[in-house]
Design a protein around this nucleic acid. Structure first.
Lengths: 234, 234
DNA sequence: CGGAACATTGACCCATGTCAAGTGTCGTGG
DNA sequence: CCACGACACTTGACATGGGTCAATGTTCCG
């Protein structure tokens, strides 16, 4: 129960994934089989038996649930280093679909279980990983449940920038691996609204859009103000 | 990773809480100190150091996060039998406020940690408890992110009915411990919309409202259809 | 070059939010 | 026992953010 403790409100979540460092696990993941999936290919689908957990090596994966009529809620995006599939019970409760050509390390659930059984810290580590993921999901819920379109998009960009920052990349120049539809289904907005909101933020001088999947953050402070409900001027 | 496996989509979540049965834990909870809190009193607040986890004996607790400007997202309601405070890191990331006079059993985090350290199954149990809670939270997200007002309210009622069912009570006659404001902040709607939607469901003959905090489900199948996007007929 | 997939933009509309009265209902004190 | 105030809930009228539908751009790849 001791963790670096993010103030979760100020660090809005943007992925339903987790990193996990427990030396034994890490070591075995490092040599685990590598699986390649094409863009749009499923890593697993809702209802599939939970056989493995995965770590993304390169590429990106979208995690989502769908309603019977096709409406979709994206729960998160897994990028390099992120774990996918943790926390599933005997069947996966969501879909994991690659949004880019992706390579994954596969760890079988039985192996995971074996680790947990003979190393008492592993179970607790898993618990902590879940706890972190839960915190992120709750932040996302706060965002989609209570914020306006512009606040959601601003939060999303800031969260993505922070993720890049952590993995060492330039945090002001973001490459979005996902489409507008993915972003929309993540934030609970339509593609059109996402697009219009990007345009609006551009007009307001907070971002630049050199290409549709590249975003340059020009005024992070202002973006942060907008994300937290500081009006949107006109 | 073996769990009774709810198809989570068909069992929409409605609480950010969990039940946990690991004999040692249960036993020690049973004799743990009892704490009483009045309605509106906080069990803990966001930012408080995480000292205990609690189990609700009687009463009910709302779990929520607030944005700086006061907008609120209720993450769940904990009723008798539910655990509160699990999954927090060293500070609580949300508020837990009683909505009725409530009695709680308190288990210190250090005791929990002690259990986890010398009983290897405890960590894994905690992990599973987290996983269940995460699944519930994701279902809620699917609801608030993608569903219309009437779908949200119908899902909410069905989820509450199911909870009562599990704890043996009459599942068609629900007593809501929370106010319209709580429901609204849970579902991402305003009090007015919640109220109007209740009225609408009443008009449509699916529920009865003998008192404002009592709901009788008259047509569960139809309610289920509505919850899943089967139109709302005028 | 042509077409597919994605993104942008515009015009319009509607579900839900906002604002403003009302209407219970409950508990307290006279 | 009634009057009162405090709350919570309901209902109505109106406003608006974002959804829908449709047309147009852009990028990329065969």
């Amino acid at each position: 129960m001791a963790m670096p403790s993010f103030s979760s409100t100020s660090r809005p979540a943007h992925n339903a994934v987790t990193t996990l460092s427990s030396t034994g696990l890490e070591r075995s993941l490092a040599q685990a089989t590598l699986r390649r999936v094409e863009a749009r290919e499923f890593v697993f689908a809702e209802g599939d038996p939970t056989t493995h957990v995965y770590r993304v090596e390169t590429g990106a994966v979208a995690l989502y649930k769908v309603l019977t009529d096709g409406r979709r809620q994206v729960m998160g995006f897994a990028c390099a280093g992120d774990l996918v599939g943790l926390g599933a019970q005997d069947e996966h409760a969501m879909n994991a679909q690659a949004i880019k050509p992706t390579r994954l390390r596969c760890l079988s659930v039985s192996a995971l279980r074996r680790f947990a059984d003979h190393d008492p810290t592993v179970g607790y580590k898993l618990y902590e990983a879940m706890a972190r993921e839960l915190a992120q999901t709750r932040d996302l819920m706060l965002t989609t449940g209570q914020r306006s379109a512009i606040e959601r998009v601003a939060s999303f960009l800031l969260a993505f920038a922070r993720r890049n920052e952590r993995s060492g990349q330039d945090n002001a120049d973001i490459e979005l691996p996902m489409t507008r539809a993915d972003i929309g289904d993540f934030l609970g907005l339509t593609i059109e609204t996402v697009s219009r909101t990007f345009t609006k933020l551009k007009m307001m001088g907070m971002i630049e859009l050199p290409q549709s999947n590249r975003v340059k953050l020009l005024d992070v402070d202002e973006l942060r103000r907008v994300a937290n409900g500081g009006e949107a001027a006109s």
